[in-house]
Design a protein around this nucleic acid. Sequence first.
RNA 1: CGGGGCAUAGCGCAGCUUGGUAGCGCACCUGGUUUGGGACCAGGGGGUCGCAGGUUCGAAUCCUGUUGCCCCGACCA
Length: 569
Amino acid sequence: MYFSKLYAPTLRETPAEAEVVSHQLLVRAGFIRKSSSGVYTYLPMAQRVLQKISRIVREEMDKAGGQEVALPIIQSADLWLESGRWHVYGKELFRLKDRHDRDFCLGPTHEEIITDLIRTDVSSYRQLPLLLYQIQNKYRDERRPRFGLMRGREFIMKDLYSFDKDEAGLEISYWKMHEAYTKIFTRCGLDFRPVEADSGAIGGSTTHEFMVMAESGEADIVYCPECNYAANVEIAPCKPDDNEQGTPLTLEMIETPQVTTAEMVAGFFDLPLKKIIKTMFYQVGEEIVAAIVRGDRSINEIKLQRLSAADIIELASPEKVKEITGAESGYVGPVGLVEKGIKVFADEEIKTMVNAVCGANKAQYHFRNVRPERDFQVTAYVDLRLIEPGESCPQCPSTLKSARGIEVGQVFKLGTKYSKALNAKYVDENGAENFIVMGCYGIGVSRTMAAAVEQNNDNEGIIWPVAIAPYHAVVIPVAVNDPVLKQAAEELYHELEQCGIETVIDDRNERAGVKFKDADLIGYPVRLTVGKKMLEEGLIEVKLRKDKVISFIKRNDIIEFIKDVLENS
RNA sequence: CGGGGCAUAGCGCAGCUUGGUAGCGCACCUGGUUUGGGACCAGGGGGUCGCAGGUUCGAAUCCUGUUGCCCCGACCA
């Protein structure tokens, strides 16, 4: 490709609205432009990257037995009413009406559509397992689109749905996909981890999220450096720490003016934070429940939520807290709550606390020498806290580290949720009807592109992994008005192209500095400069984007050299 | 959805407080000089100042409304 013809308008300045580095660089390097909030146009460079990612995804899906389909983006409300999600999906569903005033939506995901498809055409166990996938635009009217491609309202996603006759079959499909995902992200050249995660509103038991490791990621994860354990902090199980024991003393109420936070309480009583009991109230549907953890811990709301059937839990309003306890938050505690009919969920660590301190449910007072069970009742002891780095790995004796990740894929076991809702059954070997057992497996293709940039960049620009780079190499003739140099660059360019090395030749009548800057910004893995050394000694200057080293290779050896570099990257 | 901010040329911004008919840098076009890390000189094109009302002799500037966009939070495959 001749750069002079390439539609890749680069920008010297960073657009003001771009916050994260992937957004800034993709805009600056001429890959994307914003159309409206959370909606982007992909320019030729981005399109090439997306197609490379898609191609890798397709190859691995096909290898795993998947078959590609194309599903409607405009979906009738009827199916969504049938599955019940028309009302529960909420405002994130892009809804529209046709000229007859009938309801439709733009597909945010395709469980309804695909289940509808197979329920009419799949009727026998002989047709199972079946793996169908699609790579298409998805639509979600995000409350707050942000971070460029990372959280858009229109985005490209691969979804594969598996249909099995039973749980055992689903188990096989699930791990097949897990393996395929591992291959996909490995081939894309990304540093990633599959992590155990919360299955959220979609339901189902097991789920893994595939996280590209990057500081800018939205997900907090913990992982073990020794074994393969990794989990989203939302679900990472915690082992209770041993509490300091001692002779139980008598409960006392102490006046504690203006002492409200756990840190202040600890300071006031001259005790470590771990001797404090922290009490939080949550609104769970119509009910208010209390959750208690040690002062040095945080409550994991996901774990709390899993204890109830409610979809949403949120911190109770200060008014509610006062109404129930008679005190302001800061002076609340678990004593007497169960007697008032309030459920109290205590973290497992609470159980063995001795001579602890908690709010007295009376303004300006705390209790000290509190002991669970002697001084207050709990509804249940459960794992309720947020894990912290440095805690021990659940699988091995090592300690966990923390990291942040960008979720680029997830694998879910759906079970029979949708087949039951939409009545998708098959007849088994014994002639009995059963619901089809489903799984769904998504990869954010456009998000993967952004994640790749997020993980691979420096001050100068993007550093594309070879497998998904828009082009492999750029040839820079240092002066295009020197006919000999220009000719040499042209020949090199054509030879590279003929060898299947995707190349851009920067034939613009620009100073070399401009071309170098753009090459770094765009992030071609290999840069070939044709300059004085070519004319004088027959040497081509080679620089790899990912490192600083410049080497000179004989013109005759250059093709083999580049091939070698690309294959080993 | 709560809180905050912004909207002036393709991009980044100034002008607004104190109304007088729009400017800077980059980009773009023409000519010339340059040519290994975002060159220089000269000339040029491009904006109903987000939109709609209002105040005023006169509004980018003041007032009201409205739309879009961004950030923080809540929420989320």
